[in-house]
Amino acid sequence: MLLTIDAGNTNTVFALIDGKNIVEQWRISTGDQRTAEEYMVWISQLMALHNRKTDDVEGAIIASVVPQVVWPLTQLCKKYFNCKPMIVGAPDIDLGVDVRITNPQEVGADRLVNAVAANAIYGAPLVIVDFGTATTFDVVGEDGAYLGGLICPGINLSLSALHQAAAKLPRIAVIAPDTDRVTGKTTQEAMQFGVFWGYVGMIEGLVDRLKAEHREDMKILATGGLAPIFANRTDAIDEVSGELTLEGLRLIYERNS
């Protein structure tokens, strides 16, 4: 089986992939002080609960937007899974996609992995909207090249900023309103409606601008935990893919094996 590790700013997702099937998936908060031994104590218990063994893992691949965690994750793979992991972004790893931006090294590994998967599964041209710590828009051209994109504050980040900066505003969760009404009648409604419909407006406006700029009828693909909430309330999103990054990691690993 293949061990894939997607280290994001907020969470790190570990998955076991057997062939083309994601058979296990676990999530832990991303911590730049965590050691290989700490990772192993945690993941070994989860593997045991699901009757998985370290010997089942034949290879590993890591994508990280947090440079500090790459070393302990690499040591985890070498010491406890007996394999040297592929690192997305390393010079010897071929992504199979042409990165056409000013400085390709600046692009987050997860964004490139998503572009690889989206092009392979859905076909280009397309825009990937990823609802993570940041909300990102990534453009894949008709020939499959990565053309750049946009980085916006994430939804939870925006809510946290509202709560911390305004003394009378409570901490609230992101939910889809059960109404199409935009005017909030309470402070909580005003915050929930403002964030939700504000992001819907942002998505629709940016998608329209990207389509006009590239002069193409691009497929709009959403991923990330909050993607289904927004996809159900706007026609700007065509498809939702919850496992896009993991699929991309599998495809990159297969390409470089």
Results as ranks from 00 to 15, higher is better:
residue 213 E to H: 08
residue 220 I to E: 12
residue 224 G to C: 05
residue 234 T to E: 14
residue 225 G to P: 11
residue 211 K to N: 15
residue 227 A to N: 05
residue 222 A to G: 12
residue 244 L to T: 03
residue 214 H to D: 05
residue 234 T to Y: 09
residue 238 D to M: 03
residue 244 L to M: 12
residue 241 S to K: 03
residue 216 E to V: 01
residue 241 S to T: 01
residue 247 E to R: 09
residue 223 T to S: 11
residue 250 R to A: 10
residue 223 T to N: 13
residue 248 G to T: 01
residue 226 L to K: 11
residue 228 P to W: 11
residue 250 R to C: 13
residue 245 T to W: 06
residue 225 G to E: 14
residue 230 F to D: 14
residue 235 D to R: 13
residue 231 A to R: 05
residue 215 R to V: 08
residue 214 H to S: 01
residue 248 G to A: 12
residue 242 G to W: 02
residue 214 H to R: 07
residue 236 A to D: 12
residue 234 T to M: 05
residue 215 R to M: 14
residue 242 G to E: 13
residue 242 G to Q: 14
residue 240 V to L: 11
residue 231 A to I: 10
residue 220 I to L: 05
residue 244 L to I: 06
residue 217 D to T: 10
residue 210 L to H: 07
residue 223 T to Q: 12
residue 206 L to I: 15
residue 231 A to T: 11
residue 217 D to Y: 07
residue 220 I to S: 08
residue 207 V to F: 03
residue 210 L to R: 01
residue 234 T to G: 03
residue 237 I to L: 04
residue 208 D to G: 10
residue 227 A to L: 01
residue 230 F to W: 13
residue 236 A to Q: 11
residue 247 E to Y: 06
residue 221 L to Q: 09
residue 213 E to S: 07
residue 250 R to D: 09
residue 213 E to K: 06
residue 210 L to C: 10
residue 226 L to E: 09
residue 247 E to P: 00
residue 211 K to G: 15
residue 240 V to D: 14
residue 220 I to N: 13
residue 209 R to G: 06
residue 222 A to R: 04
residue 248 G to W: 13
residue 238 D to K: 01
residue 243 E to D: 15
residue 239 E to H: 04
residue 226 L to G: 04
residue 233 R to S: 08
residue 229 I to S: 09
residue 208 D to L: 03
residue 211 K to T: 15
residue 206 L to S: 08
residue 208 D to E: 13
residue 218 M to F: 06
residue 239 E to I: 15
residue 228 P to D: 15
residue 247 E to G: 00
residue 214 H to Q: 11
residue 230 F to R: 03
residue 244 L to A: 03
residue 217 D to S: 12
residue 249 L to W: 11
residue 218 M to T: 14
residue 220 I to R: 06
residue 215 R to W: 01
residue 214 H to P: 04
residue 207 V to H: 02
residue 241 S to F: 01
residue 215 R to L: 14
residue 213 E to D: 09
residue 239 E to W: 01
residue 233 R to F: 03
residue 216 E to Y: 04
residue 225 G to M: 04
residue 234 T to K: 12
residue 213 E to Q: 02
residue 225 G to H: 07
residue 234 T to H: 13
residue 246 L to W: 12
residue 224 G to Q: 00
residue 232 N to H: 10
residue 249 L to R: 10
residue 247 E to M: 05
residue 237 I to R: 05
residue 224 G to R: 00
residue 249 L to C: 13
residue 250 R to T: 03
residue 230 F to I: 11
residue 250 R to S: 02
residue 234 T to R: 09
residue 246 L to T: 07
residue 214 H to T: 02
